[in-house]
Computed example of a mutant assay.
Amino acid sequence: MTVTATLPGLSAGTWTIDPLHSEVGFTARHMMVSKVRGSFGDVTGTVVVADDLSASTAEATIQLGSVTTGSADRDAHLRSADFFDVENNPEMTFRSTSFDGETLTGDLTIKGVTKPVTLDVEFGGVGTDPWGNEKAGFEATGEIDRTDWGLTWNANLEKGGVLVSEKIKLALDIQLGKQA
Rank of each mutant, 00 (worst) to 15 (best):
3 V>I: 15
3 V>G: 12
19 P>M: 05
20 L>H: 09
26 F>D: 02
33 V>N: 13
35 K>W: 05
37 R>L: 09
37 R>G: 12
38 G>V: 11
39 S>D: 02
40 F>V: 13
40 F>W: 08
42 D>R: 11
44 T>K: 13
45 G>S: 05
48 V>G: 00
49 V>Y: 00
49 V>G: 02
51 D>W: 00
51 D>T: 13
52 D>A: 12
54 S>V: 14
62 I>L: 07
62 I>K: 07
63 Q>W: 03
65 G>T: 07
66 S>V: 13
67 V>M: 04
67 V>Y: 01
69 T>Y: 07
71 S>E: 05
72 A>M: 06
72 A>I: 09
75 D>S: 09
80 S>K: 07
83 F>R: 07
85 D>Y: 04
86 V>K: 08
89 N>Q: 13
98 S>T: 12
99 F>S: 02
100 D>C: 09
102 E>K: 14
103 T>I: 12
104 L>A: 14
104 L>K: 04
109 T>W: 07
111 K>E: 00
111 K>N: 08
113 V>W: 00
113 V>S: 09
115 K>C: 11
118 T>L: 06
118 T>K: 14
121 V>A: 01
125 G>N: 05
128 T>Q: 14
129 D>P: 10
131 W>Q: 15
134 E>C: 05
135 K>E: 08
138 F>M: 15
139 E>W: 05
139 E>F: 11
140 A>Q: 11
140 A>E: 10
141 T>M: 06
145 D>Y: 03
154 N>R: 10
155 A>N: 11
155 A>I: 13
161 G>M: 10
163 L>A: 15
164 V>P: 08
166 E>F: 00
167 K>C: 05
167 K>A: 15
171 A>H: 09
174 I>N: 05
175 Q>Y: 02
176 L>R: 02
179 Q>E: 15
180 A>Y: 01
